[in-house]
């Protein structure tokens, strides 16, 4: 069953597609050299999906990009969340780490690309490192803020019950901070995709960013749009998966907000 809201979104998507068709094909308001028509888009899609483009079929490019994003994101979360929790919990850790963090934070993640390539070459490792830097910051900040926002009586209750340190972190601090942690993960995932395409634009032999780069050099608007749409869909799919995970993990919190 589709609700009113579903119907409305479907209508607006259909309208956008129609508008696209009208301005590029029916009226020729936008020349095909600047923006592809639906037919050209379709041809490009078929070409890259079957015969391949930029050295590989679409699936191979997509898998490569997805792999880099997931690895970079995973490394960022695995390091950023514990660091944020620790800084939130220990004033001493905050005092020691925060100044360095604040110093590094304003550097745009993409500014690390030259250094990453210098250190790790043009392979996957350099890109994962750049994604890590980009995705690391929101994970740290939100985990940190999540701990700081915990109600004091909740922690006092755990201490009164004689909860040992690691159990306190695992069963009280981390779950209490988890709504904020998930906010951080969402932002980290977004940052991962943004950075990936930029990192692949600079130097890669496979991946959606590389497809975009080659298509730009070939002056091939249809293929550029295929690359953009693919990144958009992959980004949407991973965000959706994360939202599902969040809903499961925070069932207690969602219900409490009703």
């Amino acid at each position: 069953m589709m609700g009113r809201k579903g119907l409305a979104s479907l209508t607006s998507v259909a309208a956008a597609l129609l508008l696209w068709f009208v301005v590029t094909t029916l009226t020729g308001l936008v020349s095909p050299g600047r923006f592809p028509s639906p037919a050209e888009f379709w041809q490009s899609l078929v070409q890259i999906a079957t015969r391949g483009y930029a050295g590989a079929p679409l699936l191979a490019h997509a898998v490569q990009s997805l792999k880099l994003v997931l690895l970079g994101f995973a490394v960022a979360v695995a390091t950023g969340v514990p660091l944020g929790l620790w800084m939130g919990w220990s004033r001493r850790a905050e005092a020691a780490i925060n100044p360095v963090f604040l110093l590094i934070r304003p550097i745009p993640p993409l500014a690390w690309i030259p250094l990453a390539i210098l250190w790790l070459g043009l392979g996957d490792a350099a890109k994962i490192m750049v994604i890590w830097f980009a995705a690391f910051v929101p994970s740290v900040i939100n985990a940190f803020a999540g701990v700081r926002a915990i109600d004091r009586p909740m922690i006092e209750a755990a201490r009164m019950l004689g909860t040992p340190r690691w159990r306190l972190v695992r069963e009280v601090i981390a779950p209490a901070a988890s709504p904020m942690i998930f906010t951080g993960l969402r932002l980290s995932l977004q940052a991962s995709w943004t950075t990936l395409v930029a990192a692949e634009l600079v130097g890669a032999l496979l991946g959606i960013g590389f497809v975009l780069n080659v298509a730009q050099q070939d002056i091939y608007p249809g293929m550029i749009l295929v690359g953009m749409v693919t990144v958009g869909l992959l980004g949407w799919a991973t965000t959706w998966l994360l939202a599902m995970a969040e809903q499961r993990a925070l069932a207690w919190n969602m219900a409490a907000r009703d």
Binding site: D151, E156, A157, L161, A256
Partner: peptide, 14 residues
């Protein structure tokens, strides 16, 4: 020394 808090202070995820 068990404490009962005014705001209950239960763990909502448990």
């Amino acid at each position: 020394r068990a404490v009962v808090f005014q705001q209950f202070a239960l763990f909502p995820w448990k």
